[in-house]
Each structure stands twice: as structure tokens, then as C-alpha cells.
Nucleic acid binder design. Structure first.
Lengths: 252, 252
DNA sequence: AAAAGCTTTCCGCCATCGTCGGACGCTGAA
DNA sequence: TTCAGCGTCCGACGATGGCGGAAAGCTTTT
């Protein structure tokens, strides 16, 4: 990489912020230990970020502050597809009873832009803004299936095919076969490829050229996602919703 | 301000990020001009942040990325009061038809943690994560009214009393008089003090010692917020909701 | 088509400032 | 009282972030 970038100090600060997010707060020495940096250095960063109000200090523990809420909200609101899909997602969650999700691709990763819990939804670790490798979710697969091959190749070059559970696809050729199926079928399945016991159905949201902008899905426990419901009812609902979103997207 | 903090490079990066948020995206030279920094410097920062995936580049325009969504979501979810108050806020919005809000105090500022739009709600610039001086909203006033005097003084020392509209309170003594009233009454009003044409009623959420943790409110256009509705109905609804939240907070 | 005027990007030097070892002070446990 | 573990502070060194300048694209202008 040429020139001065990346600016190391900035990189360190963000590493530290992400760590605090993961740990849900920590003190100076714990952070120092985990990042393998001197406490004094860590202290400088934490103090700076606290002064700038991106962290808040409760006792001797630092936490990420709600300052990020404003940034995140802005980043999300910028996406037209979010505003348009939100009511549809809510409805999907309501009628299916399960979790309904909206995903976009950013920097080659799948990002959960929005999620809605239906009345029967199980507890899940998935949260807004969460990033996952595309091929590990039905959402991501429908997105890749509706992107040009060379773009998908570029993403794979960048991020590889990390195994997440033992059913995750880790072979490039196999993946392209699956994507072919998905494209033909019009929607994608995920059978415990990211989270054990969970199944998922997802449909793409494409623009007028068939280029995938986003994807929406319904996911629930294997016990409820089976037979007709899994192969017909839910896919049908999702495809209908996706279509509504697509139409509203073009006329706005 | 001892030692090395604040780390300037970090500070610059965040200034730049906030600017991009405000402008909803910009190119190198525009940012450079606004921050009065050389384009080369700005370029270094933007590139770093893009590499770290906190910004995304669309053509020659940089935007804040959804990476912040995850951070913001975490910051908010940490607050017990958020999870507990959310359904109440939704209900308030539904029954009143207007906007319902949840605010907390952080770094001496009022932060909109959550908002819900009722069926008749007007369009507003208020968004999640937005920060405002406490005394400019009914929300903030109920929070201050239920905090020890010296804590309020400290906040005022830090942030002053900036005028926002011509009805904003700008005198310290006057403010304390108002806070006294608010404390006595149990809830606060805001009559166009932050946004022209908007009125607002807010009640505090306090802990067992009467210390304000947060506040919730309903806000709507002056034309609908008047007479009995303004002086009785809405306050009653809000107080009821606040009470529900307080009870649920202590038993959890 | 050439040239001017805008970008973004690259390069490399110089002084700054981020880094880090170490000392200090606090708190709570033994 | 001592000790361990923590957050905080200090100061010196040298890496590195800042920035001027130049180059490389892109449009627009003439």
C-alpha cells in the first residue's frame, strides 16, 4: 500500500472500539492485554475517544457510546431499499411468525440491514449491522446468484470461503453450482449453514437489469421450517414481498 | 489535558466522518475545503477509513458505511431502559397517533435513543442517536429536573445554554425555576423551544431514588396539541407509560 | 484536438506527535 | 502494613502522520 495509508493510530483506535463492542465494555489493562499493546498507549486512545464522546466511561470501564447510533442510522437511511423494504419485512415477520431479515452487500460481506421479530421468533444472536460471509446465508447466496460471475469471483478472492458450521460450503466450484440452482429457482435455502438448527428461505431484490441490490428472508427453527411450509408457503410469501419491494423501488 | 491525548489523527478522522454524515457523502476536495486541510491529508484519512470499511466509496464520493450500525446497535442495546421502554413507546405512538420518543443523557447531552411514529405523525428531522442540549426539549428538562442540582450545574458549565429558537430558555436562573415547576408537576412541556410549531409532553423515568435515568415523550404539531388533550389526556398517558417502565425496570 | 481546470492520487521529506517504558498513586485483599 | 493489580501520568525517542508538490485522470471549453 502506497504513501501513508493506513494511518496506524486510526486503525488502533478502531480495533479498540470493536473490541469494546465485542466485550461489551472493558478496562484499560484488559484491552491492552487483548490487543497486545502497552497500557499507556491504550490509555491514550481510550482517553481520546472518551473526550470525543465516542466512548463513555462508567467507573473504570469503557463502553461504546450512542454517538455511533447516529452514524449507523444515517448509513442505513441512505439506502433506499431499507425504507421501502422495512414495512414488507415487518409484515413478513408478522404473517410467518418467524424472523424476517433484510441484507445488503457491502465490501464483499453480507450486512443485516434490518430485522423484525415475529410473534413466534426464537432468540438469535443475529443483530442489526452484523456482517457475515455471503455464502453462509440464504440471503447472501441469492445476492451472489444475481451478480455477474466476475464480481462474485472478486468477492471470493477477497474473503475466501471460511467454514462456519460443518454444512457450510467451502468449495468454489460447488458454490457456483449452488448459485446456478438458486438463480434458476428464484430463491435460496439455507439449511443450518450458519446457525445450527436454523433454516432460512431468501429471495433477491433486483434492479431492472436483474442485478441484486439486496435480499430478504424468513428464518426459523428446523422443526417449524419443513415440508410444504418450507418448500412452498414461505417461498411464495417471500417472493411476493420481494416483488412488491422491487416495484416500489423502481417507482420512487 | 495532560500527556498525549487527544491523539490528533484520531480526532481528524472522526471530524471527517461526522462531516460525511452531515453532508451525506462527499469527495476528497470538498471535505478538504470544509475542514481546511490539505487534500493529501484528507485523502490519507479517507483511504484508511475506506480500507478499514468504515467508509464506502461510490465513484468518487465517500459515505459512512453500515459498519457503524453494529456499533450503534450495541451501544443502544446495552441500555436496559431501551429494551423495556421500546414496546411502551410503540404503544404511545399508536394510541396518540403522534411521535413518541425515548431520551437518555450522555456526556451532558440529550440523546434520542428510540422513536416511534404514530399513524398521524408529521415529518420531522429528529432521528435516532440525535443529540440536543437538554434544556431545549421537554425530555431533557424532565431529566434535569430529577437530577441533583450540582450535576445539572456541571452540565450547564460544560455546554452552556445555546439559543435554538427564540423561545429557548437561555437564562440559568430561569431554567432552575422551570425545573422546579417540572419536578413539582411530575412532567414537562416544550412549546416550540426546539422546533417551530411543535409541542411536546415528557415524563421522567427514575430509579428507586428518584434519579432520572431517561425520559419519554409524545410530540406533535401545535394545532393538535392543545386544550384538554395537551393538559390532561396526553400527560396522563405518558405518566402511565413511564410508570410501567419504571416498575419493569426494577423487577428485571 | 489541444488545452485548461477540475478532480483524485501519488511521492517523499521533515517536524511532529504517537508510542511505550517506567514511575506514581489509588484501592482492596491478605 | 504490605502487596498486587489497576488506572494514570510523564518524558524521551524515532517512527509516522502531515503536507507541499507533482502526476495522472476526467470533463469541459475554445
Amino acid at each position: 500500500m502506497a504513501g501513508t495509508a493506513p494511518i496506524k493510530a486510526v486503525k488502533v483506535s478502531f480495533e479498540l472500539i470493536e473490541l469494546l463492542r465485542e466485550l461489551d465494555g472493558a478496562g484499560v489493562s484488559e484491552v491492552a492485554q487483548r490487543l497486545d499493546k502497552p497500557t499507556s498507549t491504550v490509555h491514550d486512545h481510550l482517553r481520546t475517544l472518551e473526550q470525543e464522546e465516542y466512548l463513555i466511561k462508567e467507573g473504570d470501564t469503557y463502553h461504546v457510546s450512542t454517538r455511533f447510533l447516529e452514524l449507523g442510522d444515517q448509513a442505513r437511511s441512505r439506502k433506499k431499499v431499507f425504507k421501502i423494504a422495512r414495512p414488507e419485512i415487518n409484515q413478513l415477520a408478522q404473517t410467518s411468525g418467524e424472523h424476517a431479515n433484510l441484507m445488503i452487500e457491502e465490501h464483499g460481506m453480507g450486512v443485516f440491514l434490518y430485522r423484525s421479530r415475529g410473534p413466534d421468533a426464537v432468540q438469535l444472536d443475529t443483530h442489526a449491522g452484523m456482517r457475515v460471509p455471503l455464502q453462509t446465508t440464504a440471503l447472501g447466496k441469492t445476492i451472489m446468484a444475481n451478480r455477474p460471475r466476475d464480481e462474485v469471483e472478486a468477492i471470493l478472492d477477497r474473503h475466501g470461503l471460511p467454514p462456519v458450521t460443518d454444512s457450510t460450503i467451502t468449495d468454489r466450484d460447488e458454490l457456483f453450482d449452488v448459485l446456478e440452482e438458486v438463480r434458476a429457482r428464484g430463491y435460496a435455502y439455507d439449511d443450518e449453514e450458519r446457525v445450527k438448527g436454523m433454516r432460512c428461505v431468501a429471495a433477491p431484490i433486483t434492479d431492472e437489469n436483474g442485478y441484486a441490490i439486496a435480499a430478504l428472508s424468513v428464518s426459523g427453527p428446523k422443526s417449524r421450517m419443513r415440508e410444504q411450509r418450507f418448500t412452498e408457503e414461505v417461498p411464495e410469501q417471500i417472493l411476493r414481498s420481494a416483488n412488491v419491494v422491487e416495484v416500489n423501488l423502481t417507482y420512487s
